[in-house]
Design a protein around this nucleic acid. Structure first.
Length: 334
DNA sequence: CCTGACAGCCCGGGAGAAACCA
DNA sequence: TGGTTTCTCCCGGGCTGTCAGG
């Protein structure tokens, strides 16, 4: 059934992409100066999730690498490396300058100094989910580093530019912005067809089934590919020789929740208890939530810390809060 | 009531200096 | 003297109390 499982993985970067020619071309032309060994202004890719931002960014950088002998590059997910330190560390890793940096005890901001001292070939960095970056002023610092080109990825512009000071805003104002719209139904089907061709035996699934996957994915390619992956896996395990509509129907909910589940898995026990409590109640007031949380956990943190956790959960888009004062309620994101 | 911003505490742990010892 | 152990300092990150403001 499955001939190449890699092409069904979320992080897979295809060798050819469809339906994003305009975006690829714009991005490539902005990055043009790199072909001559120069850096260029930041590029900002924005659009909802599952529309190929990460994929296109990495794809374009890969293609750039085919044409430039000397090029360093690094992908950083700011969701994971959200602190200034972690992001900088990841960026230094991309140019192998971390050898003697041992997490702590390096003088404050020596990481940035070291990045400033960089005088190698052009360095292209992709900062994914850049809106999750804790300290946005890092963008300003990075902007001023010679030879460094930033590709910034985020869902919306506000998340990135709203809470940064004018210094950064004016610098990033001349960043080229590329908007990624949601995929249309037949584009999703085409993307799925490619994955099927590259990774599955022929004839295990036909267009009608791909249609229904695309319908369920609502323009989100990550979800669509996730459903396909789960369906293939399930059919494989049950030794079926084709992927039926039934299988697709069965795996769709879990495939959809898989992404959220991944986020939940990264939470600490305390954060998880909060999230579960809110999920069970559907909607709950802050003090009721705190009481319930204390009941459920052996060694409750203070209210203050719980507030930190809650804002983190909100940041991760797992919960949302309504009202800003007395009468505020928390609820899970639909 | 509830929040976000802020300052400050403590902890783990690495580095370099200092102290110690053979 | 040189090698080893201890000490001190620094950092990031988790955590907390306070406080102004809605």
């Amino acid at each position: 059934m499955i001939t190449d499982a890699r092409v069904l993985q979320p992080e897979f970067i295809p060798r050819e992409v469809t339906h994003r020619d305009a975006e690829v071309n714009t991005l490539s032309s902005v990055l043009q100066p790199i072909l001559d060994g120069n850096s260029t202004d930041p590029v900002f890719l924005h659009g909802p999730s599952g529309v190929g931002k990460t994929c296109i960014a990495q794809f374009t950088v890969e293609r750039l690498r085919e044409n430039v002998v000397d090029l360093n590059h690094q992908y950083v997910n700011c969701w994971e490396d959200y602190s200034r330190f972690k992001t900088l560390y990841a960026l230094l890793e991309g140019i192998n300058k971390t050898i003697d940096i041992h997490r702590q005890s390096t003088p404050r901001d020596q990481l940035l100094d070291r990045l400033r001292d960089y005088d190698g070939p052009p360095y292209v960095v992709i900062l994914d989910e850049v809106d999750q970056l804790e300290d946005k002023s890092l963008l300003y610092d990075l902007y001023r580093i010679r030879g460094l080109t930033m590709i910034l990825l985020a869902n919306n512009e506000q998340g990135v530019f709203a809470d940064v000071d004018d210094r950064i805003n004016s610098r990033l104002a001349n960043a080229t912005r590329i908007h990624f719209r949601q995929y249309h139904h037949d584009e999703l089907v085409a993307i799925l067809q490619d994955r099927v061709r590259w990774g599955l035996n022929p004839d295990v699934i036909d267009t009608k089934e791909l249609d229904s996957i695309a319908n369920n994915a609502a323009g989100d390619a990550r979800v669509a590919i996730g459903i396909l992956r789960q369906a293939a896996r399930t059919a494989n395990a049950q030794q079926m020789n084709e992927i039926s509509k039934d299988v697709i129907r069965k795996v769709t909910p879990e495939a959809k929740s898989e992404i959220k589940q991944k986020t939940v898995d990264r939470l600490t026990t305390h954060q998880e208890v909060l999230y579960e409590t809110i999920t069970e109640y559907g909607e709950i007031s802050p003090n009721e939530l705190y009481e319930e949380y204390c009941n459920r956990v052996g060694d409750p943190k203070t209210q203050r810390m719980v507030r930190n956790y809650l804002s983190k959960l909100e940041h991760y888009n797992l919960i949302e809060a309504e009202g800003n004062t007395r009468g505020r309620t928390y609820r899970t994101v639909a």
